[in-house]
Design a protein around this nucleic acid. Sequence first.
RNA 1: GGCGACGUGGCCAAGUGGCAAGGCAAGGGUCUGCAAAACCCUGAUCAUGGGUUCAAAUCCCAUCGUCGCCUCCA
Length: 467
Amino acid sequence: MGMKIYNTLTRKKEDFETLEPGKVRMYVCGPTVYNKAHVGHAMSALVFDIIRRYLMYRGYDVTFVMNFTDVDDKIILRANQLGVDPFELAEGYIEEYRRQLEQLNVLPATFNPRATQTIPQIIAMVQGLIEKGYAYPANGDVYFRVRRDEDYGRLSGRRVDEMQSGARIEIGEHKEDPLDFALWKAAKPGEPAWDSPWGPGRPGWHIECSAMNLTHLGEQIDIHGGGNDLIFPHHENEIAQTESFTGKPFARYWVHNGMLQLGGEKMSKSLGNLVTIEEFLREHDADVLRLMVLNSGYRNPLTFNDEVIEQTERTLERLKSALRPALPGAKGLDEESARKLTAQAEETREGFIRAMDDDFNSAVALSHLFELVRAINQARTAGAIDADLQVAQGVLRELAGVLGLRLQEKTEESHAADPFIDLLVEVRTELRKQKLWALSDLVRDRLAALGVILEDSKEGTTWRYQK
RNA sequence: GGCGACGUGGCCAAGUGGCAAGGCAAGGGUCUGCAAAACCCUGAUCAUGGGUUCAAAUCCCAUCGUCGCCUCCA
């Protein structure tokens, strides 16, 4: 049974077939870098990272392109406000975002093209569109002739005739039709500009993605992704430009993630209700955000608030609980129980693949992971030794890894304290033997305050780091 | 106003015609000096009102509510 993937273009789940067998060409719209990235950007990055990782797990060779829009009105405006160079401003945010994606365990893209590095290709494409009659220059601007494209509106389900009321012409624009959109914008005084056949200017927002796709992935691609707020006008315009230029269908599957909701509203820069990635990672493990994303359908809105974060922290703890070693004094599992655990691991893997094959249903995939968590913990309670748990824990790590979860118990540097904690635990065991409960509780409480959890059992005491 | 999505136990959330996944919280139990963890057990008339069907959370209509896009947005 093959994979199914929901296509915004047809509004249906479709069988996944690539243009070239075994290879996936995938493009995701990245951020406009005029400010710090927020957790909504992270959600989108995580969704497509999960999709990419799963495609790789299923044996595809994935070429993954995510762009940076590094020149536009907002960047210029903000740079002027701060009195800095717009390119340096963009560069700073790009570097910061890259670091954050790494912290979020998002695999680096095959290419990270930028608008400013794609100018010649953009100019060539605009030129081509003019020659084919799909675009026209006007006072140093170049516009796309929307009514010339009969398919326009296919992705967003809009009809050109019904869009009149929404469209408008800004002061200083010279459109033939209010629906037309800019491919190239003439430079105003003091703005960054590149020479072009139409005079100095810079690219419009939509054309850069078309040009980058063409440059790095070719005329046709398998998956084009982004937030569902990009469906109109951005992706609609991308389709119009690219298909008018090449005469071929552009992306096979259009994939859009739902918006992250903060206080019941979309988190966005313009609403000002945002939590930056930096702020989130200061307080929480990157796995927490990823788990929040995994726990619900990628196409639905994601509830983001303190209560859900708290719940997810605990969910992550449960997932990790299965990776703990055997209990002290374990005698080993009987053959029957050992066989059951191995069988559950296989069942979990199959269920996981079945779920993810169905339009990346990560919530159901997770539920299978939790079946395995329960089975492993049951086995441990029943006296399994580490060797008994090894295979099942390996499967859990493998599948969690496919989702991009790290499930790390502790950081490298904390290893230095290990022998001292062992020593404290040993001393406390003596205290307990002598029934000096107040003292032994003090040791436990003080260690807990330092993030070290002690757990007593009949056979002895185990300890672990809290996060 | 136009287009679209959604409303499932206290919370998050799968499921889109055939007895309602999973996680968190809560209550009870096992274990424990106490605690923690783990394990076992417990819970849903699927927004409301009609309709179609042998059968509906799932399809159709209406109502109420929430959200997104239509302007820069992941």
